[in-house]
Design a protein around this nucleic acid. Structure first.
Lengths: 130, 130
DNA sequence: AAATTATCGCAACATTGTTGCGATTGTGTA
DNA sequence: TACACAATCGCAACAATGTTGCGATAATTT
């Protein structure tokens, strides 16, 4: 149906994700792109990448929204049920691919996705600050 | 030091929380208050209530921010480590007070708070739809 | 009742995200 | 390679959400 095209802007956004070890907000992406394209274009590219399951969206406890690349392209269907860590000092968000919570739900709820975000101090800030 | 005052606006906001079984966004609170006070005032009241640990903040997966009353006034120190459920149909957010995830963290992280939000269909929507 | 100061209302601004539309460009096909 | 079609882009305009400053108001304290 709708073929997703590889435009220069989209390639540039993907490169930014590739280079970054942490999740990025729209604004951070825009800065790294150095105004190579319009603000709106970035939003639309992010929408497409989300739709194509190339990136995933993470909303932080403080209300900010970030995006990170998915590294599981081999799986046909996947759920982003890994955890994220949000550092209260440097505000970086990293994926904790191997941390998966176990829990018991009450009846009558149908759980489709889970969002598990831990916050505190990341290793970098834990060492540098006190 | 700074004594928190009991103003009519603050009382009204607290009543709205009391009546609601689900978490509320700033906009939802404003509507329920029927323009009894200014938009900015609500933001400031929410800030104070957060500071006094009377309510807690929940940021949904879709990026929206909501607030809910804490029901653990007897505890001196508490962490909002209970889970929340976000319905993808009616967009209501409810506290799952009894759901607490267990998990294993990598070393070198200092976890101070956790945010565990499950999304899917709530009991109400699970029954009415399909 | 008066004084103190937290809180309020208003205006103005900042940030973030969305939409419509004509122009541009990537990609399959002739 | 050139053409045609549609996805994508840039721009402008708008909407929603959150913040800040300041003079006015009102809740407490004395």
């Amino acid at each position: 149906m709708k073929a997703t095209r590889n435009t220069t802007a989209k390639t540039a956004v993907l490169e930014v994700f590739e280079k970054s070890k942490t999740a990025l907000s729209h604004t951070e992406i825009q800065k790294q792109l150095n105004d190579i394209c319009d603000r709106v274009t970035i939003y639309r590219i992010l929408d497409r990448l989300l739709n194509d399951d190339i990136i995933h969206k993470i909303s932080n406890q403080d209300g900010t929204v970030k995006y990170a690349k998915c590294n599981h392209s081999h799986q046909r269907v996947h759920i982003h049920n890994h955890a994220h860590f949000s550092c209260e000092n440097c505000h970086e968000i990293t994926c904790l691919e191997n941390v998966k919570p176990s829990y018991i739900m009450p009846h009558n709820y149908k759980v489709k996705e889970i969002n598990f975000t831990l916050s505190g101090l990341c290793p970098k800030c834990l060492n540098s600050n006190i």
